[in-house]
Amino acid sequence: MLLETARLRLRRFTIDDVDHLVELDADPEVMRYLTNGRPTPIEIVRDESLPRIVAQYDRHPGLGRWAALDRTTGDFLGWFALDPSGDGAEAELGYRLRRPAWGRGLAAEGARALVGHAFEAVGVRRVWAETMAVNARSRAVMAKAGLRYVRTFHLTFDDPIPGTEHGEVEYELRREHWPRVRQEWDAALRAR
């Protein structure tokens, strides 16, 4: 177990999670801004993605991709990631949740927990994330996790999906800004 929040448990993936990941990536709405709704083939998950995820835990302690479970029921909800970038002093925040978990604040809850983990336990200097400019829900999660908009940029794709023409966006939170963000979160909790 990496960490727990009020409603989530984040744990390491195992090879036994193939079916969870295949099911998650089979939902066209989950994959809308990634593959235009096309599922990830089981062979890719089983033979490439999942072995890479599992191997990463030892190379970059505290970083990686984590299975998200409902803390009460133990149901698989999706995943959250702090993927190491560069020399490991930076981490890319990511998340992918099953549709029944959408709209409940779970993405922001898990993302916030990982941002805190990145700065306090791992000691990264920067957490960043990217998404399509048109992916308003993901952008909202990034903002709720304390990340701030940095830029919009355009990539060239052989098989662009709808919305590509609006570009990609990058958000970040740097170590020097983490104490202020943490204070804002703590103040908001006390005000409840």
Results as ranks from 00 to 15, higher is better:
144 K>C: 03
135 N>Y: 06
129 A>S: 15
171 Y>L: 06
176 E>L: 09
161 I>M: 09
157 F>L: 13
175 R>A: 15
184 E>L: 07
168 E>Y: 09
168 E>G: 07
143 A>T: 03
163 G>L: 02
166 H>D: 09
167 G>I: 01
129 A>N: 03
159 D>Q: 07
139 R>C: 12
147 L>M: 04
128 W>P: 09
156 T>K: 08
131 T>Q: 03
131 T>R: 01
154 H>C: 13
183 Q>W: 05
139 R>E: 02
134 V>Q: 02
189 L>R: 13
156 T>R: 10
182 R>S: 15
135 N>I: 14
153 F>R: 08
161 I>S: 05
163 G>H: 02
183 Q>H: 10
170 E>H: 05
149 Y>L: 01
166 H>W: 08
183 Q>D: 14
128 W>V: 15
165 E>N: 06
164 T>S: 12
148 R>F: 04
139 R>F: 09
163 G>S: 07
157 F>Y: 14
154 H>E: 14
165 E>R: 11
150 V>Q: 06
138 S>I: 00
161 I>G: 05
157 F>H: 15
168 E>V: 11
162 P>N: 07
144 K>M: 05
128 W>Y: 10
182 R>C: 12
165 E>S: 11
153 F>K: 10
157 F>W: 13
150 V>H: 02
134 V>K: 01
183 Q>G: 13
147 L>S: 11
148 R>P: 11
145 A>Q: 05
152 T>P: 11
175 R>C: 11
179 P>I: 15
191 A>C: 10
132 M>C: 02
130 E>W: 06
149 Y>A: 00
158 D>V: 06
133 A>T: 12
143 A>C: 05
180 R>Q: 14
170 E>M: 13
141 V>C: 01
136 A>S: 06
153 F>D: 06
128 W>I: 08
135 N>K: 05
188 A>R: 09
192 R>C: 12
176 E>C: 10
181 V>D: 00
138 S>N: 00
157 F>I: 12
152 T>K: 02
164 T>G: 08
159 D>I: 15
174 R>G: 09
179 P>A: 15
174 R>V: 15
151 R>L: 13
134 V>R: 00
149 Y>S: 01
191 A>H: 11
155 L>A: 14
191 A>W: 08
143 A>G: 04
161 I>A: 09
141 V>Q: 00
155 L>C: 09
137 R>W: 00
185 W>P: 00
187 A>F: 03
174 R>Q: 13
128 W>L: 05
190 R>M: 13
154 H>F: 14
137 R>F: 01
179 P>F: 11
158 D>H: 06
158 D>G: 06
160 P>G: 13
157 F>K: 13
137 R>Y: 02
144 K>F: 04
180 R>T: 15
170 E>P: 09
127 V>E: 00
175 R>T: 10
142 M>T: 04
167 G>H: 03
188 A>G: 12
145 A>D: 01
132 M>T: 01
167 G>C: 07
148 R>L: 10
136 A>P: 07
182 R>V: 13
190 R>F: 12
141 V>W: 00
160 P>V: 07
135 N>W: 06
126 R>K: 04
188 A>M: 08
147 L>D: 05
178 W>S: 04
165 E>G: 08
162 P>W: 06
175 R>Y: 06
186 D>A: 15
164 T>D: 11
134 V>F: 00
147 L>A: 09
180 R>A: 15
